[in-house]
């Protein structure tokens, strides 16, 4: 168990920085995913299709671009 007074402030700083950055990247990745999902859903709701998506519908999922 960690003992107070034995450089615990350095240990706490290192863990706070690490976990802070990790949390920030998790929030950013989740937010970005949600934003793109909503944009895609809005475009699909307007009836817009990619050319390759139309080709996929005709020829199966092996063709097309991302």
């Amino acid at each position: 168990m960690i003992e107070a007074g034995m450089h615990w402030d350095y240990v706490a700083t290192a863990y706070a920085m690490s976990l802070g950055l990790i949390l920030a990247v998790i929030v950013w990745v989740a937010f970005d995913a949600r934003r793109q999902r909503l944009k895609l859903a809005a475009l699909e709701a307007r009836g817009i299709r990619r050319r390759s998506a139309r080709a996929e519908t005709q020829a199966g999922p092996e063709t097309g671009t991302p």
Binding site: A33, R37, K39, L43, R46, R50, P66
Partner: peptide
């Protein structure tokens, strides 16, 4: 975990761009 989610997002981002061009 983050790599899989980010790759999924990137594919969706490219689809959004393609659909905006199409629109």
């Amino acid at each position: 975990t983050l790599q899989v989610v980010s790759m999924r997002t990137e594919i969706m981002r490219r689809r959004v761009a393609a659909m905006q061009r199409q629109a």
